[in-house]
Simulated scan of single mutants.
Amino acid sequence: MRTALVIGTGLIGTSAALALVGRGVTVYLTDHDPGQARTAAALGAGTDEQPEGPVDLAIVAVPPAHVARTLAEAMDRGAARGYLDVASVKGGPRRELEERGLDLTTYLGTHPMAGRERSGPLAATADLFEGRPWVLTPTPGTDTEVLNQALELVSLCRAVPVVMPADAHDRAVALVSHMPHLMSALVAARLEKADDGAVRLCGQGVRDVTRVAASDPAMWIDILNANPGPVADLLSAVAVDLDDAVRALRLLESADPAKRGEGAAGVETLLRRGNKGRGRVPGKHGAAPLAYETVAVLISDQPGELARIFADAGRAAVNIEDVRIEHATGQQAGLVQLMVEPSAAPVLSAALRERGWSIRQ
């Protein structure tokens, strides 16, 4: 791939453009908002000038509702030799393209499983896709050259290709992305009019659960509008579980020991199901996550403190598998939770204590 046209210079389009430019590809940028394309160009994502002829690959990075129209316009003017989109829903746009009677041999629907709470070109990074799954949804009619171009794009962005049918993709993202986002929003919505005293007690748990609720509502309306059925099916199943949870909790209020026992069993069943489901979420190496030990360290909110603690862990020859920071409300301090292999936890704890760090159990 020597040339590419990125249509839509939001977070995903600009991030892909930055990655391609960094690998020596000439990238042309266009957007319905010319100012946004100019911003992406100023960030080094390519040029907002138009190519003189067809490019090797056109990457359509617009909301799902606009994918078919944007692709059709690009195909009609012969903008590229191959076309793909990066929308988060795949089945609907492809069916709309088929209804338009377009030749789809040069088109491939894709979806990089990466993103941030922020949107727009200023939030873009060249490493956004690194190590992340990038779904490709070819059909028997997809031209081999277009599939190869898509695989090259994924490689240049240092992502991991995953091939699956379009409708299977849509059901999968409803489960792992779209439904969880709505659940996060539902929890966060409970905080909207909550007492200030209660909100001040927010800890890392509620921060983790509500993190994605900070995303742009307009973007998510576009996504959910394109995949409502699978998401509604999942929420219906969640509603059944919620009814069971409410019933179990009401039983715990009973004065009857038998009913309280039934309620406790119901809550335990739900929590254990949650344990099993969480255990299936892939870890950093792709397989089921290992059981890491946590070393919690008190850290002050000062420049260089994180760098110092990581350097001290490196001197102890301990690999940090994961890290979380729990901020103390109203204080210039917090807890850094360092996840390491169980055998390394005592080594790390001793080494950090020796270097003056305060270890918390």
Rank of each mutant, 00 (worst) to 15 (best):
G334Q: 09
A68K: 05
G10D: 04
P112I: 08
R23Y: 07
D167E: 03
R190M: 07
G78C: 04
V323D: 02
V246R: 13
R260Y: 03
M339H: 08
T9C: 13
L11Q: 12
A328W: 09
D48F: 01
A214L: 00
I309C: 15
T329N: 12
A79S: 13
R77W: 06
V206E: 05
E117W: 03
A296P: 03
E145W: 00
L338N: 01
L71K: 10
I320N: 12
L108M: 12
F310S: 09
Q50I: 09
A65W: 00
G203P: 08
T139K: 12
R353V: 05
A79F: 03
R77F: 11
H111I: 01
A265T: 08
G53A: 04
A291D: 08
P138E: 02
D222T: 03
H285F: 07
G22W: 04
P257I: 01
R94E: 06
L175H: 15
S254Y: 00
T137K: 04
S254P: 03
A226P: 02
S300R: 15
V55F: 10
T125S: 12
P34W: 11
H327R: 13
Q302N: 15
L5Q: 07
M1T: 00
S215T: 13
R2W: 11
M113G: 02
T30W: 13
A311G: 06
R38D: 13
V21H: 01
L18P: 15
S15G: 08
V154G: 12
V199M: 15
A166Q: 06
M183C: 15
R308I: 13
G286V: 01
L71M: 10
L57K: 14
R315L: 14
